[in-house]
């Protein structure tokens, strides 16, 4: 048996392997990229939701961006605790307000709002909105097909009983996915601590809005008069709450004739003793 028949294949493969190995080793030295260990450490403290709320495709990309000089408090899922952890790793002071934000659908129309026509075609808010702005008479109203529900990775937004998308503030992490998905652009971020929200986005004049939807803001201005804190204004025929000034007194929600201003009363913090008791003792009647 010709010994060369074994030596050649083995030898040539081994030689090629060694050659390529050496070339790769040389290349990896020559083109070495210094990996910052801080990026890995930051990635480890991030929630790994990969939601994209920070503006980067995933948690690992954001971790790298922080090392490259990005702000440390962009992760809305982790919030302040994660920002603090990142601050430790990066050796900087914690910044950011720590104000928890949640998404809010600024519409309460649904079945309260008339339909212009009966839509038959592709389901989905985007498809519907492309046909004459959607079947709803109000062109700034929630279509209710749940494009936002489909993109939410946290199960925090659902279509409620009367056909409007509603955010579950407890689950919402302010990743902004629903805001981007809504073809009407009627979802916005609001501070979680605020309790009074105008649930309407229609900028048409009062009578027009009123003809289409029973719970729309008709820009009557009663809320502006009722507010003692200069925290609500009518701009472009639409009432808007200034969340920096609002103190959750709920006067605007009481005077609104169409109930377009949502009052999240059940979630308001009760003082102890309960205000009704105090009021009764003082001989004052309190409306609940």
């Amino acid at each position: 048996m010709d010994i060369m028949k074994i030596i050649w294949p083995v030898g040539s493969l081994a030689a090629l392997g060694l050659l390529f190995g050496a070339a790769l080793a040389f290349a990896s030295q020559k083109f070495a990229v210094a990996v910052d260990s801080r990026a890995e450490a930051i990635d480890a403290v991030l929630p790994q939701a990969n939601c994209g709320g920070c503006g980067y495709p995933g948690c690992a990309n954001y971790a790298q961006a922080v090392v490259d000089g990005e702000a440390i408090d962009l992760c809305s899922v982790g919030g302040l605790p994660v920002a603090t952890e990142i601050a430790k790793i990066m050796g900087v002071e914690t910044i950011g307000s720590g104000q928890r934000m949640v998404a809010k659908v600024k519409c309460n129309g649904g079945t309260n709002c008339k339909d212009d026509f009966h839509y038959q075609g592709q389901p989905g808010c985007l498809a519907k909105s492309m046909v004459a702005g959607g079947p709803k008479a109000c062109k700034d109203g929630c279509i209710g097909d749940g494009d936002c529900v489909a993109v939410c990775k946290f199960d925090a937004i659902h279509i409620n009983d009367h056909g409007v998308a509603q955010v579950d503030a407890d689950k919402c992490v302010a990743c902004k996915m629903c805001i981007a998905a809504c073809p009407k652009g009627i979802i916005g971020l609001v501070p979680d601590s605020n309790r009074a929200h105008v649930l309407c986005s229609n900028k048409e004049r009062g009578p027009q809005v009123k003809a289409n939807c029973s719970v729309a803001c008709i820009a009557c201005g009663l809320c502006v008069k009722a507010c003692k804190f200069d925290a609500i204004h009518v701009i472009d025929n639409l009432s808007r709450v200034d969340y920096d000034k609002c103190v959750n007194c709920m006067q605007c929600t009481k005077v609104c004739p169409t109930k377009a201003i949502e009052a999240l009363i059940p979630k308001r913090r009760r003082t102890d003793p309960r205000p009704t008791d105090v009021a009764t003792e003082a001989g004052v009647s309190v409306e609940e």
Binding site: W8, S12, L13, L24, V33
Partner: peptide
């Protein structure tokens, strides 16, 4: 060397090395 039977192995070796090389260089 009349080693046609080795071509699959050898070609894969070459391709794998090339991909690795491309990866290293691109990263830099």
């Amino acid at each position: 060397q009349n080693m046609g039977y080795l071509k699959t192995v050898m070609f894969i070796l070459i391709i794998a090395s090339l991909v690795q090389f491309v990866e290293i260089v691109l990263k830099k």
